[in-house]
Amino acid sequence: MSLIEITEVRKSFGANEVLKGINIDVDPGEVIAIIGKSGSGKSTLLRCINGLELIDNGSISVAGAGLLPDELHLKALRLKVGMIFQQFNLFPHLTAGGNVVLSQMVVRKTPKAEAEAMARKMLERVGLGHKYDAFPDELSGGQQQRVAIARALAMQPIALLCDEITSALDPELVAEVLGVVRELASEGMTLLMVTHEMKFARDVCSRVVFMHQGRVHEIGKPEEVFADPKTPELKQFLGMH
């Protein structure tokens, strides 16, 4: 059975239909890259899976449970699916450790000592064990993004959504973040990532989704999609990259 089932999902902002019937099934352990021009609806799709945007039509289910727009169901969904943002969105008033501890304690009601131990473990995992007490404004962009990954991992999600997580980084900081993601992938984490890093998509992902004008235009294994694009739109898109 698929871990994430996206069926006929439609979403409009006013008169502008951004998603025009999306179907994707994601198996456990898959790493999926979503590529496409800006405005093709790829970020919106990720945000819908996390319930940050409510879908107008169709259905999304994660591990068999459907996405419903009330607070209880949303919370259940978000405990299963973590999200990493382009702008990191760390909480600036908390330390790196505090960022990772907070949601464990207030959402999962994990006892403090246990949450802190988990936070240390997760910060270790992204290579930032020594930055436990640093505040976000004392960290580089790459470090902040790795803290954000640790923060999401601490909730023990079964899948992670990554929304252009290296786009706001200086070029020399991209590698350290992608390194962490690569490691997660090799450990079997299910990942859905919107990305412009074509090389990374080719090397690490199990499937690539090319979105165009609100639809899944092409989908397949990276070697097929990149080596042998079927549609002129994808050819043109790859030509630009």
Binding site: L52, M83, F85, Q87, N89, L90, A148, A152, M155
Partner: peptide, 17 residues
């Protein structure tokens, strides 16, 4: 910033939290 709301939402926090 709006991102603070979104990040905390994505971690499963409710409005009051």
């Amino acid at each position: 910033a709006k991102g603070q709301w979104e990040a905390s939402s994505s971690l499963g926090m409710g409005y009051v939290q």
